[in-house]
Design a binder for these strands. Structure first.
Lengths: 252, 252
DNA sequence: CGTATCTTTGACCAAATTCAAGCCACGTGG
DNA sequence: CCACGTGGCTTGAATTTGGTCAAAGATACG
């Protein structure tokens, strides 16, 4: 009930992810009702939202920054099971989800809704239920892709697939002569623990891809990618790997 | 509308998975309504229900046998993303799920419901929606575990985890002096493609585990497992790895 | 008894990890 | 302005592990 941080219609109207991702999939009336329940909050990088012993009724839409959901083994090995980009929701399952930790990768801004209030609204609004279900299916699909990567793809294929996807999910500045510049805010270690390769291997592979002319390393955080589709092909992704809410028909 | 194969109340009453898994999670009245829509069908081993180009509105509960959901790469590598045991539902997502093939591992008996009829019933019965959502979450959780296995666990750890889980999901005949006999109907190659190791490695590992006294190989399809919990520990699983609908309290 | 299928075993090899050190950009403080 | 420390990235050499390939057992079934 902290009036201070209440989001309200005005701030929601101005939100950059309002028309994308989870919020974008709702109709304006419902989004308005949700906005009334939401509070915006900022957190620093590497903030631990909940540890691997489960987390409380947490639900939020990520407005800015990146988050990771991860798990550690006793001896320190880590697997990142999901990376969340702005516009996506967090805390999809109603369950405690013990065993997984949720942390910010970069500084983040969340649009947070109390679990109970969300559940009450979902109880009466079928559309919200459908949106939540759709997000859960999207999560499942992404996890299948990750499982596929980890299972049958070589490190090189995984990295290529990841780069191709990154062109659609991370900041990607198109260049006049084709392709674009991809900006990573994620450190190598997080990419490594997502794809289950070491950061050394990422380094070796990116430089090999550069030698093959597939990418160009501007600096460690900026890659020029001339042909994302070529990477997608190596990574074994379908032509348009990730459903981006842009309306243009895919070229045949 | 094939009256011949209609399940009806009687056959549903006699079904072995009626009180477990998906069906067991529904209340009797709803289960009765579903039974009216269901048809029982049998299929041979290795029957392809849908290939990797997507499948039509398929929904069923597996009554007997095992199924696998898998994906192939162009050069023949395969990843099994889910193994389905009796009592579980198939075709969880409403979506076409392009990219994944669904096949029987052994001869199977399905209790099949037409997608449209299921959706109509779900539209009016909140409880059914909840059950479907719960199954989707269960799928997500299992896939996370598989991702964890593939990502950070060694082949030995994966196999141990798999064996421990198998004690709860596959036929497990308790022995008087502790432990029990585990029966595999799955060929090594399917286990291998699920855990992403080769069948040769499975063979080497099982024999090593036998040498270490953790298991005893009766014959290729029957293992004696004295202490499933020990395997679960090696496999990095929580104490009671899989929620089995048996009511007994876990020992501390 | 032969055939087919599945499992087991052994020898060799490739690939990614590990470990170690070096590099670079950045911010701090003298 | 420059030394210095820090964190992240890169590079190299040695090592290990599980895969590949090939062939031999085992089992079921006609």
């Amino acid at each position: 009930m902290t009036e201070l941080q209440r989001l309200g219609e005005g701030k929601c109207m101005a939100c950059s992810v309002r028309r994308t991702g989870f919020c974008g999939s709702l109709d304006p009336a419902l989004r308005g009702r949700l906005a009334g329940l939401a509070r915006s909050q900022e957190f620093p990088a590497n903030h631990r939202f909940c540890d691997e012993d489960g987390h409380p009724g947490f639900f939020a839409v990520l407005r800015e920054g990146y988050m990771r959901m991860q798990r550690h083994s006793i001896d320190g090995r880590r697997q990142i099971l999901a990376l969340t980009v702005p516009g996506e929701m967090l805390g999809e399952g109603g369950e405690p989800q013990a065993g997984y930790g949720l942390e910010s990768v970069t500084p983040v801004t969340l649009c947070r809704i109390e679990r109970g209030a969300l559940d009450r609204l979902a109880g009466e609004a079928q559309e919200l239920r459908r949106a939540l279900y759709a997000q859960l299916e999207e999560r499942l699909e992404r996890l299948r892709r990750l499982t596929w990567w980890l299972g049958v793809q070589t490190p090189e294929e995984r990295l290529c697939g990841f780069l191709a996807l990154a062109c659609e999910m991370l900041p990607f500045e198109p260049l006049p002569d084709g392709g674009g510049v991809l900006t990573f805010s994620l450190p190598r270690s997080d990419i490594a623990d997502y794809l289950n390769i070491t950061k050394e291997t990422i380094s070796r592979l990116t430089h090999r891809l550069q030698a093959e002319g597939l990418i160009e390393i501007r600096d460690p955080r900026h890659f020029v990618i001339r042909d994302p589709a070529a990477l997608a092909r190596i990574g074994g992704l379908p032509q348009s790997p990730c459903a981006v809410p842009a309306g243009g028909p895919a070229e045949a």
